Simulated scan of single mutants.
Amino acid sequence: MTELSIPSDLLPADGRFGAGPSKVRVEALDALAATGAHLLGTSHRQSTVRKLVGRVREGLAELFSLPAGYEVVLGNGGSTAFWDVATFSLIRERSQHLSFGEFSAKFGAAAKAAPFLAAPTIVVSDPGTRPDPYAEADVDVYAWPHNETSTGVMAPVRRVDGADADALVLIDATSGAGGLPVDVSETDVYYFAPQKCFGSDGGLWLAIMSPAALERTAEIKESGRWIPAFLDLQTAVDNSRLNQTYNTPALATLFLLAEQTDWLNALGGLPAAVGRTTASSDVLYGWADKSDVATPFVVEPSDRSLVIGTVDFDEHVDAAAVAKV
C-alpha cells in the first residue's frame, strides 16, 4: 500500500484529540496558572472553593436555561459513579434502559445487579442504531444516553408517552452535554462529567435535577434503604446547596470547568455551542457521504452525533494504516 501523507497545512494543531478527554483551552490553563497559591491546596469548605462551586452551578444553570425548581448537583467519581448513585438513590423498584453501545449498557448492568431492585427492562438495538423507550406500568425510571460515545449515535431527549405520572427520565449526557441541543424540562436528571465539551478533567459528576428527582431522592433516603455515603445522592444534594461537595474535589477540574462554562455562555450559550458542533460534524459527514472510500457509520442522518463522528471505510482501505497517519 502506498504510504499516506497529509499535507502539513491540513493537519490539526493538536493531533491528540479523539473520543476521550477533550483538548483544554490554553486560555483556561493560563487562567488556572494565574491563581497562583490562592486556589490549589485550599480546603473545599473554605469560601474560595465554595465560590468556585457556586460559579460552576450558576454557569450551568445559565447554559441550560434551567426551569424553575431544577438544581445543579455535583459529586466526585464521574459518570461511572453516578450510575451507582442513581441505582441506589433514584430507582424506586424497576427501571428501563436503552442499550445501543458499550457505555449505554453499563447503567442497565448496574441496575440488574442490585439485589434490592426488580429486574430491569433492557431494550437493545444493533450498533449504529438506537431503540426507543416505551411505557411500562411498573417502571419508575427510564434511562438512556443522549450520545452513545462508542458508536456515534445521538438519541432524542423527550419524556416517554404513556409512562406513569411519577416515572423519571434519566439522561446520560457525558459526551454530549454542552454540544448537543436539549430541553432539560424533558428530563428529570441530565447528568454528565466535565472531560468532554466542558474542557476539563474527569472524576466529577454533575446532574441537573428536576423537582421530581429531588423528591424521589428524599423519598428513597427516608425509606431506610442502605446507601453507601459516597453514593448517597441526598448527601450530594445537601452539600451542593451549600456550594460544596461531600468529599474533597479536584480544584483544578472545578476551575477549568468554570472557565469553559463561562466561555460557552460568552459565545452565546448552548445555541452557539450547538452551532459550532453542527458545522464541524456537517464537514465530516458531508465528506463521508460523497467519498468513494468511506460512509457514515450511522445510517440514519438524524441519529448522527454532532460531537462524536464515526465513519466506516471501504473494505479495501486499511483503517489501521489510516489511523497511524
Rank of each mutant, 00 (worst) to 15 (best):
D84V: 10
D164F: 01
A137P: 05
S43K: 09
A31L: 05
A111I: 08
V49Q: 01
V311W: 13
L52Q: 05
Y190A: 10
R92K: 15
T149K: 03
T48P: 00
V182N: 09
L66Q: 11
P194E: 10
E27T: 15
C197L: 12
A165S: 14
T35P: 06
N76T: 07
L90D: 06
D201S: 13
W83M: 09
I6D: 12
L63E: 02
E315P: 08
F82R: 00
D232S: 02
L206V: 15
L60D: 01
F82I: 02
D138S: 09
T248D: 14
L170Q: 01
L63Y: 02
V85K: 01
L267G: 06
S175H: 11
H146D: 05
G77D: 12
R45W: 10
L98R: 08
K221Q: 14
V160F: 05
P228N: 11
A105K: 14
G101V: 11
Y134T: 07
M1H: 14
L233T: 03
D161C: 01
K324D: 09
I208C: 07
S175Q: 07
R92L: 06
E222G: 04
D314M: 10
L4Y: 11
A33G: 00
D164C: 00
A105S: 15
T129R: 07
Y70W: 03
G77C: 08
V124L: 10
D262W: 14
F107S: 03
K196S: 12
V325Y: 08
T151P: 02
L242V: 03
L257P: 03
R130M: 15
G203N: 13
A207R: 02
A252Y: 03
E186S: 11
I308D: 11
D140A: 12
V124Y: 10
A28V: 10
V293N: 00
F192D: 01
F313P: 04
G268V: 05
G203R: 07
G41K: 09
R276A: 09
E315A: 14
V85C: 06
A218E: 15
Y70P: 05
Y285W: 12
V153Y: 02
V311R: 05
S302C: 06
Q260L: 09
A236N: 06
Q195H: 15
W144Y: 12
A323P: 04
D238N: 12
G199N: 11
R16T: 12
G20E: 01
T278E: 04
A321R: 15
R57D: 07
L251W: 05
T253M: 03
Q234C: 02
Q244G: 05
A135G: 03
S5C: 08
L10T: 10
D232Q: 01
Y70R: 14
A118G: 06
F230I: 00
T187G: 11
T310R: 11
V73G: 00
L306W: 04
A34C: 06
A266T: 10
